[in-house]
Amino acid sequence: MFTEPAHGVEPTGNNQGASTEQVGGSDKNGIYAAARIQYSGSVAKGGGRGNVTSTDVNWTPPPCWYAPYLGAKDFKKEMSKHIDSQLNAPGMGGTAGAALGEAKRHYEDGYGWTDTPGYKDYNVENDGKGMFWAGVENPDEPDYLKRTSCTDLPFWVENGDAPPPQYEEAISPEILAALAYQHMQLPDTKVTLAPEANTKVNLPTWAWLDKAVFDEVQATAALNVPGFNIQATTTAKPVSLKLEPGTRDAVMYPASGECVINADNSIGEPYAKGKADQTPPCGIRYLRSSGDGTYKLRATITWEINWTGTGGAGGDLPNGTFGNEQAVTVQEIQAVNR
C-alpha cells in the first residue's frame, strides 16, 4: 500500500541555553504539511545526535512516528494526483496496481478494513475539522528499514481527539521526550586538575568540577498544529563523575574512579595549599612516567534523565553519559645527588 509521509527535515542546532526549531513537513504549491517539531533549550548543533550516550544499550530513539500531515482538501489534491499518476504509469499492474486501486477506493469510496474505516471523497466535507496523519521518518536513524517502518496509510484524526489506539507510533509526549533526549547537547566535561597538566610520579593529582559548570540541562520538543498541541521537556541532572587515567599504572581516588556529587552540586574538592600530603576525595596517583608523551585522562559524567510532558505525563529515561579526554604529562621526580 502507498504511504505518503510527512517529510522530516533535519533540525537546526543551537548553543546551550539558546532556542531552535526543526521543521518537519513541506510547504510547496500552497500546500502546508503541518508536521513540525520545535526544539528549544540545549539542542545539539547541526541536528545530529546529541552528546548523550544511553547507559541502556537496548534503548533507541523512535525511528519513525505518525504526525499531522494535511487537511482534507490538500490531502485529496496530493493523494489523488499521486495515485492516478501511478495507476496510469506504463506496466503498472499486479500486486502494486491492486494496492493502489485499494487505496483509491479507501479514500474515494469508503472502502475500509477492520479498525480502519474508509472515506468518502477524501473526507473533504470535514475539511478544517481535523487532519490526515502520516508517517514521518526520523532523519537521524541510520537504519533505513527502521526509519521507513511507519507504513500505514494516512488516517484521519478530528481536532482535539487522540489518534486511534492501534497507531502505537502516533506522536506523543513520550516520543517527543525521546527526541529531545536524542538531540540534547551536554556541556564539555573538562575537570580541573592540580597539578594542572604536568604532574609527578606518585604525587596525588586532585580533580574537581565546581557547581558553576556542573548544572542540569534541559531540552524541549513540541508539536503545535491546529487542534493538537503537545510537548515534552527532558531534564538531565549530573550525578557522578568517572575518571579513567589512560594507563593501568595508576591509583584512583576513590578506588572505583567514580566521584559522586557533593551536597553543593560540585564534585571532588579543589586543591589548596597545605593539602599536598592528603588523599584527594577525587583524583589520581600515577605510578609511571608518561615518557615523551601524555596519558589521555578521560572524564565522563553520568546524567540522570527524566521528562515531563503535556497532560501531566512524565517518567524516567535511561541515564546518559558524556565524556572528554584531556592530556596529562607525568614526569619522574628528579633527585639531586651531592
Results as ranks from 00 to 15, higher is better:
residue 76 K to Y: 00
residue 144 Y to I: 14
residue 130 G to W: 04
residue 146 K to Y: 05
residue 90 P to G: 11
residue 97 G to D: 04
residue 75 F to W: 10
residue 61 P to A: 13
residue 90 P to L: 13
residue 125 E to D: 15
residue 117 P to S: 13
residue 88 N to E: 06
residue 69 Y to R: 06
residue 172 S to N: 09
residue 139 P to C: 11
residue 55 T to A: 06
residue 75 F to I: 01
residue 165 P to N: 13
residue 123 N to K: 05
residue 169 E to N: 14
residue 73 K to M: 08
residue 129 K to L: 09
residue 63 P to W: 07
residue 68 P to D: 10
residue 77 K to V: 05
residue 123 N to W: 02
residue 135 G to L: 14
residue 145 L to D: 14
residue 117 P to E: 12
residue 145 L to S: 13
residue 135 G to M: 15
residue 156 W to N: 11
residue 100 L to P: 00
residue 125 E to F: 03
residue 97 G to F: 08
residue 74 D to F: 08
residue 142 P to K: 08
residue 128 G to V: 12
residue 58 N to I: 00
residue 130 G to F: 09
residue 172 S to F: 05
residue 145 L to G: 12
residue 146 K to P: 09
residue 140 D to S: 13
residue 154 P to M: 03
residue 125 E to V: 07
residue 163 P to Y: 03
residue 170 A to G: 03
residue 131 M to N: 09
residue 107 Y to W: 12
residue 161 D to P: 07
residue 163 P to E: 07
residue 130 G to M: 09
residue 66 Y to V: 02
residue 60 T to N: 13
residue 73 K to D: 07
residue 104 K to G: 02
residue 127 D to K: 05
residue 116 T to M: 12
residue 173 P to T: 14
residue 135 G to P: 11
residue 131 M to Y: 12
residue 124 V to K: 04
residue 102 E to Y: 07
residue 120 K to T: 05
residue 109 D to W: 03
residue 135 G to C: 15
residue 96 A to P: 00
residue 159 N to G: 06
residue 159 N to C: 06
residue 96 A to N: 09
residue 99 A to L: 08
residue 63 P to C: 11
residue 56 D to P: 05
residue 131 M to Q: 11
residue 93 G to T: 08
residue 167 Y to W: 15
residue 126 N to I: 00
residue 83 I to T: 00
residue 147 R to Y: 04
residue 139 P to L: 12
residue 89 A to I: 01
residue 139 P to E: 14
residue 154 P to K: 02
residue 99 A to C: 07
residue 139 P to F: 08
residue 174 E to W: 00
residue 55 T to V: 06
residue 89 A to N: 02
residue 64 C to E: 03
residue 93 G to M: 10
residue 94 G to F: 01
residue 116 T to F: 12
residue 169 E to S: 15
residue 105 R to N: 14
residue 70 L to T: 00
residue 118 G to R: 10
residue 164 P to E: 07
residue 84 D to A: 15
residue 124 V to I: 11
residue 142 P to L: 04
residue 133 W to F: 08
residue 80 S to E: 12
residue 62 P to W: 02
residue 94 G to I: 01
residue 145 L to Q: 14
residue 65 W to K: 01
residue 141 E to K: 05
residue 161 D to H: 07
residue 160 G to H: 06
residue 55 T to H: 02
residue 99 A to H: 06
residue 101 G to C: 00
residue 139 P to N: 13
residue 133 W to T: 02
residue 85 S to Q: 14
residue 144 Y to F: 12
residue 92 M to H: 02
residue 130 G to I: 07
residue 103 A to E: 00
residue 145 L to P: 08
residue 124 V to P: 07
residue 154 P to L: 00
residue 171 I to T: 06
residue 108 E to D: 12
residue 147 R to A: 10
residue 122 Y to H: 03
residue 106 H to D: 05
